[in-house]
Design a protein around this nucleic acid. Structure first.
Lengths: 297, 297
DNA sequence: CCATTCTATGCTCTCAAGGTATCGGTACTG
DNA sequence: CAGTACCGATACCTTGAGAGCATAGAATGG
């Protein structure tokens, strides 16, 4: 029994006529008759009641017709779907990102992608930069929006936007009134930043910026999430240098200030070069075509 | 593409080794390799990434594996089911009945049948005797519990029980005190009975009984349902001769009386002799084996 | 660099499956 | 009632899809 037999069976069940059913199967009646009886023999079940004048389905045949149609439909669907999956029109795409650098980029990219590939299920995974790198290596992510990596020989990378640091302080802080900030302004201040094993790019940028001004960075609190950092600054527990993209979301009790000669860091779309997931290509196509939408305003 | 190809594909997807997968399919490796590439060619999709050292599924292949397993499982299930249906272990059985003669018989038979054939869906159709006969002829019912038909050459019939007539009158009626009823007692009374085109057997029995006593039957009301008849008698609008089996369900305002020399009528299980529904046989087997359970107490 | 392992390919052969002709049975028709 | 048309089953022949064998070619490990 294989699916071609099912086609034969359905043809006969629908026409109730050996000759016409055989024609529909592009074959002559005698071998078609043999096919039908071989089906019945292999199932051990009589599917048709027949004599030389008319053909009718048995009760078992009626049930089998129902099942057969369902199976054939599913078969067709599977063959169509596998082609869609291969073309990246359907499937799953696991996209990692860091919201604190991508709060504008991710929603836009997701919207554009969903419009173009509605049958691809986007699985969004918000993680820390270090986690994202690891997951990209392991294949646990198909792509990610993160800081442009330094060593990218195993990654395909396309730059989406750049971000820079901005100072946030409590509204009561002495720096709240200063127009723009220089490294020397940070001398003696209590800094809040994510630890190096969570967001090395940011951490290095902050440390580097202080060092450039000859000021040693003094970190008093090291939460993992950027939103926590904002809250702690709000409470007056320290000051912080955070990505500009995040500053629009701070509350009224926090003041943000531009800093002079801020280091810039790239935010990029990355995917393993070895990725076999065909849905990824479109993501890069969109990133390239609509790059203007992601750029810093 | 047919289902044997799916088996090959699944074997390889599960072993990820051409030689072992071929062995599982009871064939040698070279033709197996050709089968796999013919699948890929006919789908136009690469399902495996392979070199001489290892074999892996592509993303499309993973999806297709999932679908293929589902299809093969459904295929197996369909082949098993069609055999169950042919053996009457599974399917549907449309059973017609008249509750007013079968209020004890139907629940018992249904219970016994459901215990023995849990996968057969019993579809119960409560109809008038004439409807039932018509539906049996048309094939709209697979079997029915009804009055034993007079002409049964096209029906298989097995007697389940017999019933007889009993008089019901309102508690205030002059016959309410009489011990047992003779035809002559009915002289001049207003009778209530279902019309002949609804329940000819009952109607004829009533008319015949009156005629035997030399009393013309005078029908004043002719509802279709036996329960309606009981209600009308309860309201004092007439008297009625109804099947004994129904009398236990009358309320306190109605009195039932045995009648002398009541005609008896058989209640039987009937099915078209030409019935092709294999579930019917078991129904008759039960009716025969458990006949004692259906007999009038 | 050789041995080993695994997939791909070339060649041969066989049998499953298709085609043609025809039989046997049934219903309609004049 | 004979004749005809139609339909499914059977007999026989034919062919090509698919199986096996031998082996090439590629990759890995010692």
């Amino acid at each position: 029994m294989d699916s071609r037999h099912l086609h034969h069976f359905v043809a006969l069940a629908e026409t109730l006529h050996f000759g016409r059913a055989a024609a529909r199967m592009n074959m002559s009646q005698p071998p078609f008759s043999r096919q039908i009886s071989s089906i019945e023999k292999s199932l051990g079940v009589k599917l048709f009641e027949r004599n030389s004048r008319n053909v009718t389905l048995t009760t078992a045949g009626e049930h089998f017709l129902h099942d057969s149609k369902a199976i054939l439909a599913q078969f067709d669907a599977a063959c169509r779907d596998v082609q869609l999956v291969a073309n990246g029109m359907k499937g799953e795409l696991k996209l990692g990102f860091m919201m604190h650098v991508a709060n504008r980029v991710v929603p836009t990219l997701v919207r554009l992608y969903s419009e173009q590939r509605p049958d691809v299920r986007l699985i969004l995974e918000e993680r820390t930069p270090v986690d994202i790198n690891e997951m990209l290596l392991e294949g646990a992510l198909d792509a990610a929006i993160t800081f442009a990596p330094l060593s990218a020989q195993h990654l395909r990378t396309i730059s989406l936007t750049t971000d820079r640091l901005r100072l946030i302080v409590s509204a009561e802080h002495r720096l709240a009134g200063v127009e723009s900030i220089r490294p020397s302004d940070l001398a003696g201040e209590s800094l809040i930043a994510a630890p190096s094993h969570v967001a090395p790019t940011l951490r290095d940028a902050i440390t580097g910026y202080c060092a450039a001004g000859g000021v040693p960075a003094r970190f008093v609190l090291e939460p993992w999430l950027q939103h926590t950092i904002v809250r702690l600054v709000e409470e007056g527990l320290g000051i912080a240098l955070i990505p500009e993209a995040l500053c629009s979301e701070t509350g009224p009790k926090v003041v943000s200030k531009p800093i002079v000669d801020s280091p810039e860091f790239e935010v990029a779309l990355c995917a393993p070069l070895a990725s076999r997931n065909p849905t990824v290509a479109t993501l890069f196509d969109i990133a390239k075509a609509k790059r203007a939408l992601f750029e810093r305003r």
